[in-house]
Design a protein around this nucleic acid. Structure first.
Length: 582
DNA sequence: TACAATGACACA
DNA sequence: TACGTGTGTCATTGTA
């Protein structure tokens, strides 16, 4: 090995896994080869340039699964370099702790280390918090380890412990294998999230500006001044309500202004306003539209979140209890439809946008193995098929009934619809109703891959204390206890579906990431929102990318649910602008 | 002055 | 009588 070889001296030709700890400063770091179960298979090695060492090991084509404390310290500094796979200790710790019924516990390396050694568990100051300055990013105390603890020792020990805890899981019916898949997919999610945050979503400020100018008028020169059309609308609103000045952003003042005109408003919600017969109502609806655009996605938003033609939000993997991602900053997961026109592919490139249709009822069909519903979900339009089979062809009724069953709706005229569904699809309805009962009794439910819902809060347990668990818990007289029980039942009923859908989407993301790299580089994932993905790809690769998405969706279905007749279609469209998708 | 709660609306 | 689940962000308003 020459002195220039970035692979550390003595590094083995193959390793199943490798622990990786960058130095706090200077770009060096240490790595250690590990067996699948976490046992070291060689001595720790030092690399003067740790990211070059990782890249060189990856380049051999036999890359280990890199084990690191968390993606922000373990991976983000390496970008745009790439690794094939990883084991993210923080994300895995959260999954394992939740599986044990203790939710929301600190998940930093230090927290996991402390649990392992029976020490007081430190809070998660570092993991997932604002990245702060670069120095603190690598500081050992960010890992929340006790002073003097060697981070590499901790990474190796915590990883071995996690592998042991996974190995100790119930092994009936493939449970353990599915949880391993969950750990791998969650970790891959950490890679994708870091890569998407690094790469950003193509964003055309000029298109965005034109849209803002059209709706709001030109950008005000004075900071904080209202744009012309917004001010003008507020003025018209005031005149329509008698001319006395009031703040149109204040619900209380708006309600009072209407009351002065003899119009009683229960609230200022748009849907209530639509029913109000007064000229000011329409103006107020218009004002709210403009005001929201200005406040949430106006010029200030653009200044804060768009740089160099890219919108750069941060994604929080596992940020939602169901396993969906959360966003931090810029409202990445709430890009309103009217703004999607600003998401435009670079010249010579395109966007491949794919959306999973009717994913939740399909997931229910796959989860519950209800033969009838699975047959229905083998069709292209599930609701239409359901309508034909059980609702006399009425698609709206079919959709209403099924959504109501999945969300625990009881109000409205939904009773007869639920009765029909129960009769026709006993296994599927039994599945969600069992999940609801478990929740009402304070129990835990899990997604198909084993992600576990939070346990009831202490306050909830307090309130329902003294009541025997059982079917009548939620059926009692209408008191607080029954209300709490039913509320948690709705949550767990929905959790099994939403979380299993998130499992599938995460596996899809992991599979697609690999295929894009292998077969469609330099195409990149640039956006992911629960059941929708956007890939930015050179035009000549667009068709191939679309195929890869479809294939990845099938592969994810097979991995997540096994053999099932249910279809989980991911429908790709090739566009230049996000607004043109669908 | 700073923070939390509230209402509203955006997304799946 | 009631109440479909999750999330983030903003402006206003009330409280410490």
């Amino acid at each position: 090995m020459s002195a220039a070889d970035p692979v550390p001296e003595g590094w083995p030709d193959r390793a199943a896994r490798a622990a990786l700890v960058p130095d706090p400063q200077g770009g060096g770091g240490r790595l250690q080869p590990l067996a699948e179960d976490g046992t070291p298979t060689g001595p720790a090695a030092r690399a003067a340039d740790v990211w070059a060492a990782v890249a060189a090991v990856e380049a051999r084509g036999t890359a280990p699964r890199w084990v690191w404390a968390a993606a922000d310290s373990g991976y983000t500094p390496m970008l745009p370099g790439r690794v094939t796979r990883c084991h993210d200790l923080a994300l895995t710790e959260a999954l394992l702790v939740a599986h044990d019924g203790a939710f929301g516990q600190p998940r930093s390396l230090g927290a996991a280390w402390a649990r392992l050694h029976g020490l007081p568990v430190p809070d998660d100051l570092g993991v997932g918090a604002d990245s702060g300055d670069q120095d603190s990013l690598f500081a050992p105390d960010r890992l929340q380890l006790p002073p003097g603890t060697d981070p590499l020792t901790a990474v190796v020990a915590v990883h071995a412990d996690q592998q042991r805890r996974v190995a100790a899981l119930d092994d009936s019916d493939g449970t353990k294998a599915r949880f391993r898949l969950l750990v791998a997919a969650e970790s891959a999610g950490g890679l994708v999230a870091a890569e998407m945050a690094y790469g950003g979503l193509p964003w055309r400020n000029d298109v965005h500006d034109a849209l803002l100018a059209d709706k709001l008028g030109p950008r005000p020169v004075t900071r904080g001044a209202l744009p012309a059309k917004l001010a003008e609308t507020a003025q018209r609103l005031q005149e329509a309500l008698g001319g006395r000045p009031f703040n149109a952003d204040s619900h209380a003042q708006v309600i009072k202004a209407f009351a002065d005109q003899g119009v009683r408003l229960a609230s200022t919600r748009t849907r209530h306003l639509r029913e109000i017969d007064h000229p000011a109502a329409e103006i107020l609806i218009h004002y709210k539209e403009l005001s929201r655009l200005h406040a949430a996605h106006g010029w200030a938003w653009q200044d804060a979140w768009v740089r160099g033609g890219r919108f750069r939000p941060e994604y929080v993997v596992g940020g939602v209890v169901s396993g969906r991602w959360a966003g931090r900053g810029g409202g990445a997961l709430q890009i309103p439809r009217i703004l999607r026109g600003a998401v435009v592919a670079d010249p010579g490139w395109c966007l491949v946008v794919a959306d999973a249709s009717q994913v939740e009822p399909r997931v229910l069909a796959a989860l519950s193995r209800d033969a009838g519903l699975a047959r229905t979900a083998a069709e292209g339009d599930l609701y239409q098929a359901l309508a034909a089979e059980a609702f006399g062809g009425d698609r709206d009724q079919a959709k209403l009934g099924l959504l109501g069953a999945m969300y625990g709706q009881t109000s409205g005229d939904i009773g007869p619809l639920l009765a029909t569904l129960r009769r026709r699809y006993p296994a599927a309805m039994g599945y969600v109703e069992a999940a609801a009962r478990t929740g009402e009794d304070g129990g835990l439910v899990r997604s198909v891959l084993g992600r576990t819902c939070p346990p009831p809060s202490a306050e909830w347990l307090d309130r329902t204390e003294g009541l025997e668990p059982g079917a009548d818990r939620a059926d009692r007289a209408d008191d607080d206890v029954a209300r709490s029980a039913r509320s948690r039942g709705r949550f767990t009923r929905n959790f099994v579906i939403q979380a299993s859908a998130a499992d599938w989407a995460l596996v899809l993301l992991a599979v697609l990431r690999g295929r894009l790299h292998d077969e469609a580089a330099p195409a990149r994932l640039v956006f992911f929102q629960h059941d929708e993905i956007v890939v930015h790809a050179p035009k000549e690769l667009a068709e191939r990318v679309a195929e890869l998405i479809t294939e990845s969706a099938d592969e994810a279905k097979r991995l997540t649910f096994g053999q099932t007749p249910v279809r989980l279609p991911m429908v790709p469209t090739i566009v230049e602008s996000y607004a043109d998708a669908k």
